[in-house]
Write a protein that binds this DNA or RNA. Structure first.
Length: 522
DNA sequence: TGAAGAGACTCAGAAAGGTAAGC
DNA sequence: CGCTTACCTTTCTGAGTCTCTTC
């Protein structure tokens, strides 16, 4: 119960924990154990002897120190904040760009990752472990021979300087928690990334011409004499129909237990012969990428259902559903069906084609711009649902929903008053028949019209927000939807592109905005 | 020859940061 | 008109996919 002065190294690691005291992570056993284990490694002999139990450590004083510091920064006068901003901008101006093929290009992540505690997603066995500080001696620089090779900080040297023009990264280092490589790469707005993005969508468009043949083939393969072929055909069906990820196998115990299509286990699906009147329903329930839950009930073809039963026969819940299949087999097969085809292309293809179809279906030429944007968001949402892109509802969701409902009510009342006013003005004009009263009628008419527009906007906003509660639109917009579909739609319906893409998105999709006219078809 | 591991790239949601609407 | 608050944008870095290399 007495305060203790820590050595520099132990103190720094302790502050990493103290800063996170409000976070749920610090309540998790695994996080606490991993942290304590790594923290001890930073302690000197004396500290190790005294600090033996994390439960008995009180970090509140440290925590308070950082809270106060953050508040102080927030309370800084405007000019001071401005000054800090300018300093940050200057740093970005110097280090945030590189020159590639004679063009000055923005770098995505030019700052090295600072030390801290590893935060995995879901039940990650390594959460809480110490992520160590990266030194110049850990960093590999990749540039061209004749360029200005960046100088390491004084009295330091780089791990290596190489001149590899077969890769796109500018610098890399190996991270200590999982032993993985990390890279400094270009911003999505760069020519290099833009071209790659374009290529990705072109491959997906090629799939459009092949998809019917591929679908017929996997239908046929459901009846194949070979088990492996049947499994591959059912897996491919899931990937195509449900936009599941490929599902590479991962090392057990090193990461959170998540799966994709090929790594599905028997315990992840349930077969219902009859579910509320629907035949052959498969119930999926598993954790996918980032430990996001995938839950879906899907009616499937009889042959698929039969196959699944067969695949599950005599197996434990923890056995692989597709025990004869892995992603490498699957992708080899796909490569034979179409050059460049891999499992993930199906996600891109189905996402983009869905957007295009939904836009065609939902866009009403008569509607206002605001309503068209709502239609766009709905189409976008259909894709996000397909790809299972979720978000935790914002903490302020309930409150903000109530707010907007209140606003709608208020606007309705205002509208009623405005209607009355208009009526009165009309009556008044009928009696007086003068210019002044006529003008008043016009004025009231305009007011009423404006209010009706405002009300409609609010209602559109409310609907949009409600439907969006748990769905994240950003990921599909940024990574799965061919931007040319969006650009063409905007041009066709005279919706300003800024209403759909913000500044960053316009920069990323500059290639599509440049090359697309309203007739583009995916 | 195929499994394991390394490497390089895309995709992912949370959190921090910034901004504009509303009080 | 200044301040707060809610929302949108940007940053961050972890988590996948898929290919290449090695034994």
């Amino acid at each position: 119960g007495s305060p203790m002065k820590l050595s520099l190294a132990a103190e720094e690691v302790a502050t990493f924990y103290a800063k996170m005291l409000d976070h749920e992570y610090t309540t998790k056993d695994v996080f606490r154990q991993n942290f304590f284990h790594d923290w001890k490694k930073e302690m000197n002999e004396q500290e190790k002897k005294i600090i033996t139990d994390l439960d008995k450590c009180d970090f509140t004083q440290m925590h308070q120190y950082f809270t106060e510091k953050a508040e102080a920064k927030k309370a800084l006068p405007k000019e001071e904040k401005q000054k800090l901003k300018v300093e940050q901008d200057e740093i970005a101006e110097i280090y945030g760009y590189c020159v590639m093929d004679g063009h000055r290009e923005k770098i995505a992540n030019f700052k090295i990752e600072p030390p801290g505690l590893f935060r995995g997603r879901g039940d990650h066995p390594k959460m809480g472990k110490l992520k160590k500080r990266i030194m110049p001696e850990d960093v590999i620089i990749n540039c061209s021979r004749d360029s200005n090779i960046p100088e390491p900080p004084k009295n330091h040297h780089w791990k290596e300087i190489r001149f590899d023009n077969k890769v796109t990264w500018l610098a890399s280092w190996t991270e200590n928690v999982q032993g993985l490589l990390k890279y400094i790469m270009l911003n999505p707005s760069s020519k290099l990334k833009g071209e790659k993005d374009w290529q990705k969508y072109e491959i997906a468009r090629r799939l459009k011409d092949k998809i019917d043949a591929i679908r017929s083939q996997y239908h046929r393969d459901w009846k194949s004499r070979e088990m492996k072929t049947r499994q591959r055909a059912v897996a491919l069906y899931f990937i195509d129909k449900l936009a599941l990820r490929a599902g590479n196998e991962k090392e057990e115990g090193e990461t959170a237990d998540t799966v994709g299509c090929c790594s599905l286990r028997v315990e992840h699906i349930k077969l219902n012969e009859n579910d509320n009147g629907q035949q052959c329903v498969v119930e999926f329930d598993f954790l996918g990428k980032d430990s996001i839950r995938y839950y879906n009930k899907v009616p499937v073809e009889k042959q698929v259902f039969k196959n699944l039963k067969l695949f599950m026969e005599n197996k434990d819940p923890t056995d692989d559903l597709f025990d004869r299949l892995n992603t490498s087999d699957l992708n080899k097969h796909l490569q034979e069906l179409m050059e460049g085809l891999t499992a993930k292309v199906f996600r891109t293809y189905n996402a983009s084609i869905t957007l295009q179809e939904q836009l065609a279906e939902l866009t009403d030429p008569e509607e206002s711009i605001a309503e068209k944007i709502l239609s766009y968001n709905r189409a976008n949402r259909a894709v996000a649902i397909l790809c299972n892109h979720q978000r935790t509802p914002p903490k302020t969701y309930e409150k903000s929903m109530k707010n907007i409902q209140a606003k709608i009510e208020a606007k309705k009342e205002q509208l009623a008053v405005a209607k009355k006013d208009l009526k009165n003005a009309k009556v008044d004009h009928k009696v007086k028949k003068d210019e002044k009263s006529k003008q008043m009628v016009e004025k009231k008419k305009k007011l009423l019209q404006r209010m009706e527009e405002q009300l409609m906007k609010l209602e559109v906003q409310a609907t949009d927000r409600e439907e969006n509660k748990q769905i994240a639109l950003g990921t599909s917009k940024l990574n799965y939807l061919d931007p040319r579909i969006t650009v063409a739609w905007c041009k066709k319906w005279h919706v300003p592109i800024e209403k759909i893409y913000n500044k960053t998105q316009r920069e990323k999709f500059a290639w599509a905005i440049d090359m697309t006219d309203e007739n583009f078809e995916f």
